[in-house]
Design a binder for these strands. Structure first.
Lengths: 211, 211
DNA sequence: GGAATGCCGTACCGTACGTTACGGTTCGGC
DNA sequence: GCCGAACCGTAACGTACGGTACGGCATTCC
């Protein structure tokens, strides 16, 4: 019922964190009874606060999304080094997010829910994941274009190529249960590689094939 | 119990097709009773043939995989035009597969199963999807390198970049329920773009940043 | 022709889980 | 000190579904 738009109370946040931890640890044992036990609250309270199971899950997704979105990025820059750093930072952040156990569990849940029709968790996850990062990266790309550092017709197309170069097969493999440990070093290296490749494709100083 | 390695009988194939159709149409209503009704067989037969629910699902995944794997590709080529065509063909095939309702439903199922531990459908899907196409593309890439058309240290790394340029955000968006219609024209265009970008990054005649 | 086998349809069983109900406890306001 | 509200813990209910059992029918084998 609540948590539709308003901020959840501290106690409710604790409950949602319990859902997240349970989701990560137990995977599919995400039963209302288990949540109540983990959060040390009664099922009656869960239903009073969140309406039903889907409401609880939706609130959990939103709660985690709000937490991830906390990361901020500075305004568009001008020289190529700053642009590269900015892109690399985005790439590293994105890789860190999608390889985190929380993200994996959350996406699995949302994808499972997308199979049925009700309560599109998938939409919420997309809105706060893939689309949110796209919206945040767009001004960077367009500033790069205005500064004569990048060349592209459509920023969305350019972003999607960047997205592909960064993520490659990582997310789908993790979601399907592949063991794919991404350490900090590996993420940094992959982020740098993806950024260099993107600049090779869309940078003004290099060859620039059109999309 | 059966269908572990041997080919399923015609009647069993009909059952597995029923599972697939039900999976695509109903999403999560994939109950044993529903399968039996759709396939006009008894539940007893289902359990006799496939052991339990997971066995049925595993057999279904294998059955669909065998069908997809039917597509064959000619041996490595030598000139740049043939290489480009070959890559473009792979890209278009891959996009067609991942955007098909069957693939979406199957991957959703496998991802949901990956949350729990038992019976890794995820492994089977990975093995017959992502990894199978990688193995098939590798000789093409290596032939291209030997012919002096491509430059890369590790064919796996090169392939993963190609994979990212082709798929981008398509699969995760579809899995999360985003409406993203990929027509034949769009697939052809995307495949061509991804191939050109890949060749720009790894082709010998262009700039070749190292991975 | 009769027995056996394979399979369909359906009824049945046990369990897990979402949801509700209720008794007991804590706590803020008067 | 008393009242009501909020909430915890747990019991109880209804249902959905995986899995099993059984009666009937068709086909095949002797």
């Amino acid at each position: 019922m609540a948590a539709e738009t308003e901020e959840p109370t501290a106690r409710q946040q604790a409950v949602l964190d319990a859902v997240l931890s349970l989701m990560v640890e137990e995977g599919d044992k995400l039963t209302m009874t288990a949540v109540a036990r983990r959060a040390s609250c009664s099922k009656e309270t869960l239903y009073k606060w969140f309406g039903d199971r889907d409401g609880l899950l939706a609130a959990t997704v939103r709660w985690q999304a709000a937490r991830v979105r906390a990361g901020r990025y500075d305004r568009p820059t001008l020289d190529i080094a700053a642009l590269r750093d900015s892109l690399k930072g985005f790439a590293a952040t994105w890789l860190t997010v999608i390889s985190s156990p929380t993200s994996i569990a959350l996406n699995r849940l949302a994808i499972g829910h997308a199979a049925s029709r009700k309560s599109n968790l998938g939409g919420i996850v997309l809105e706060n994941g893939r689309f949110a990062i796209g919206e945040r990266l767009r001004p960077v790309l367009e500033a790069g274009r205005e500064a004569g550092l990048l060349a592209f017709d459509d920023s969305e197309t350019a972003f999607r190529s960047f997205f592909g170069l960064v993520g490659r097969d990582v997310q789908i493999r993790l979601l399907l249960g592949d063991i794919l440990s991404l350490g900090r070093d590996e993420i940094e290296r992959d982020a740098a590689r993806a950024t260099d490749q993107f600049l090779a494709l869309y940078g003004r100083t290099e060859s620039a094939p059109e999309a």
